[in-house]
Simulated assay, not measured.
Amino acid sequence: MSLEDLTEEIEESYTDFDDDLAVSLDRETRNELAVLETALEPAETDELVRRAIHMLFQTTVETGKLDFHLRSGFDVTYDEYLSGMTFDEMTGADQYPSMDDERRYQF
């Protein structure tokens, strides 16, 4: 897969989300959400869910897990996705023709 494939999949996922995203909660998650809502007193419960997504995203980026999964699935990193070009494209490494090992040392 490539940077273009990643961008396409992200755009598809983004359009699949409605303004209201229905999420089912298990008992443990419901309990934790109730405790957080009681303690933090947000204006809406949705605010806690938004914060949780931001925290998960930030943690995943900082620990390198996002890059690991993007590299495994799409052969790009998050920085490459943000810049819109791969490292090879940034450095010009993809501009050189590939070396032919059989003829490499022939003059």
Rank of each mutant, 00 (worst) to 15 (best):
43 A>G: 03
101 D>Q: 11
41 E>T: 09
78 Y>P: 05
100 D>Y: 06
93 A>R: 12
50 R>N: 01
48 L>I: 15
84 G>Y: 04
95 Q>P: 01
63 T>A: 04
102 E>V: 02
23 V>E: 04
62 E>W: 04
54 H>R: 15
103 R>Y: 01
34 A>Y: 06
90 M>T: 05
43 A>H: 05
53 I>N: 00
79 D>S: 13
79 D>G: 13
25 L>G: 08
71 R>E: 14
30 R>N: 10
46 D>C: 06
78 Y>A: 10
68 F>V: 08
73 G>E: 13
27 R>F: 01
34 A>T: 11
75 D>C: 07
75 D>M: 10
90 M>Q: 12
77 T>Y: 09
63 T>P: 02
43 A>L: 07
29 T>Q: 13
75 D>E: 14
27 R>L: 08
27 R>K: 01
91 T>S: 15
25 L>V: 07
41 E>C: 02
87 F>I: 07
64 G>D: 10
93 A>K: 12
76 V>Y: 01
73 G>Q: 14
103 R>V: 08
30 R>Y: 04
91 T>M: 13
53 I>R: 03
64 G>P: 02
51 R>K: 15
31 N>W: 04
95 Q>T: 15
54 H>G: 03
64 G>W: 05
88 D>Q: 05
34 A>W: 00
58 Q>F: 13
52 A>M: 14
67 D>N: 06
61 V>A: 07
105 Y>H: 10
92 G>Q: 07
51 R>D: 13
45 T>G: 00
94 D>E: 14
97 P>L: 00
42 P>H: 04
56 L>S: 07
65 K>C: 05
100 D>A: 06
26 D>W: 11
88 D>S: 11
81 Y>E: 09
45 T>E: 12
31 N>G: 01
84 G>N: 10
57 F>M: 15
104 R>C: 04
34 A>P: 01
38 T>Y: 12
73 G>P: 08
82 L>W: 03
58 Q>G: 06
